[in-house]
Amino acid sequence: MFGAEKGKADRLDGSELVIGIVQARFNESITNTLAESCKAELVALGVDAKEIDHVLVPGALEVPVALQAMAEKGGYDALIALGCIIRGETYHFELVANESASGVTRVSLDYQLPIANAIITTENMEQAVARQTEKGRDAARVAVEMANLLDELG
């Protein structure tokens, strides 16, 4: 089956995939939970734990360069970006949120490699806590589904 004929559930088999994760340490109480839920969901989808590479970077602005290095290294079916940016009182929030998202997208397009972007942006810590587990799981599902879709399209 191809395209619309193949359902989402058919694309959620991660048993043949190699996945890379880049996690920002900033706001690590949130990003650690994002990573834990993401890796647990990847394994639940059939990705062998040995086929998950997980690296840490200081913050969200450093995520794209690590993703780029992984993409250049090759061997990954999909990558995942994890981070947490909480609004402060300055323009810095917008800068970090916009530039990290732009960098993640650029790497994905430049390397034709799916990257699930789970760098969450929230107004406060309460919102981040409320989203941390589900967004980690969502990132895993997106990575697996898109890796399988691009394989079909390739």
Rank of each mutant, 00 (worst) to 15 (best):
I80Q: 12
R87F: 11
L67E: 14
I86V: 13
E72D: 04
E62A: 09
T90Q: 08
H92D: 04
A81F: 02
A66R: 09
P64V: 04
C84D: 03
L61F: 12
M70Q: 08
Y91T: 12
A60P: 11
F93V: 00
G74S: 10
L82V: 04
G83S: 05
L67R: 11
L79P: 14
L61I: 10
Y76L: 13
L79H: 11
I80R: 15
P64W: 06
G74T: 08
V65G: 01
F93N: 04
G88D: 07
A66Q: 14
L82N: 07
V63D: 01
Q68N: 15
Y91Q: 13
E89C: 00
A78Y: 08
M70D: 05
E89Y: 07
E89L: 04
K73T: 04
L67G: 04
A71K: 08
I80G: 02
D77K: 08
G74K: 09
L82R: 11
A69M: 09
A81L: 06
Y76F: 15
E89T: 01
I85F: 03
G75T: 08
I86W: 04
A71R: 13
G83Y: 11
V63L: 01
E89H: 11
E89M: 12
G88M: 13
A66D: 04
A71C: 06
A71H: 06
G74D: 09
I85L: 03
D77Q: 05
A78R: 14
G88L: 07
H92L: 06
A60M: 07
I80F: 14
L82I: 02
D77C: 11
E89S: 14
